[in-house]
Simulated assay, not measured.
Amino acid sequence: MIDVYIDGASAGNPGPSGAGVFINYKNGQVENHSVPLGSMSNHEAEYEALIIALDICLEKGLTTASFRTDSKLIDDAIEKRYVKNKQYQPYLEKAFSRIEQFDLFFLKWVPSNQNKNADALARKAIRKT
């Protein structure tokens, strides 16, 4: 099973934003994805990072994956299948439409210091916008 680390970042709230996706294949191979997102809030960037990572995995046929995020918002929304702020409902629906295509999907919250690669990729993406 691969490990997929995700992070979204914004310079301002809203402001220029980016998504970072770090995939560890656990065989010595890793992938880095740094995706500019335009102007949005940090929470929107976190959701976009999740959706982008899910799309990358599905495009590659990687349907058994363990995702890691340092966003409690994302972790809680996926675990509870619920968002308090209805503004994020479309993001949650997009995410689950992809998650349902996985054979095995896990999402785990990790502290920021364990998500440094994805964070750096998200910040790099902001500079590309």
Rank of each mutant, 00 (worst) to 15 (best):
E46P: 05
R127L: 15
R123E: 03
I78L: 13
A77Y: 10
D55R: 14
P111V: 05
S34W: 01
N113A: 00
I74L: 14
Q87E: 12
E44C: 03
Q89T: 10
Y82C: 01
R123K: 15
N85E: 08
E44A: 12
L121W: 02
R127A: 15
Y25F: 15
I99K: 11
A45T: 10
S66D: 09
S71C: 07
N24V: 05
K124T: 10
L54R: 05
P16V: 03
I23N: 06
A65G: 10
S112I: 01
N13C: 09
S34H: 02
T69N: 11
G18N: 10
F105R: 09
G38D: 10
I23Y: 04
E44Q: 12
D103Y: 04
D55L: 05
I126G: 07
A120N: 08
S34N: 06
K108F: 00
T64C: 10
P36N: 04
K80F: 05
G12V: 05
A9L: 09
K26W: 03
N13M: 08
Q89C: 00
Y88D: 03
V83K: 04
V4L: 09
F106H: 13
Y82H: 13
R68F: 15
G20S: 08
K26T: 07
S10W: 08
L107P: 03
S17N: 11
L107T: 03
K60A: 14
L50P: 02
D70K: 12
Y47A: 02
L58V: 11
S112H: 13
S17Q: 13
A77W: 12
A49W: 01
I52N: 09
G61K: 15
A19F: 04
N32D: 12
A95Q: 09
A120S: 10
D75F: 14
F102W: 06
R123A: 00
E44D: 13
K108R: 12
E31M: 03
I126T: 06
T63S: 07
D75R: 10
S39A: 09
G20L: 10
F105Q: 12
E93S: 06
E79S: 13
S71A: 12
N117L: 00
N42S: 15
P16I: 05
S41F: 07
K124V: 00
N117K: 11
K94V: 01
E44I: 02
N27D: 14
K80M: 06
G8W: 03
D119G: 02
D75E: 15
K60F: 06
I99H: 09
K84E: 09
F96E: 04
Q89L: 15
S34I: 00
A120L: 08
K84F: 00
V110W: 12
C57E: 07
I6F: 01
P14A: 14
E31A: 07
W109T: 02
E79M: 02
K116W: 00
F96I: 11
N24E: 08
I74M: 08
L37S: 11
A9Q: 07
A53L: 01
A53P: 03
Q87Y: 08
V35P: 01
S66H: 11
L62Y: 13
Y25N: 07
S41I: 08
D7R: 00
V35M: 07
S17W: 14
G38T: 06
N85A: 04
L92I: 04
K94F: 01
L73G: 03
L104T: 05
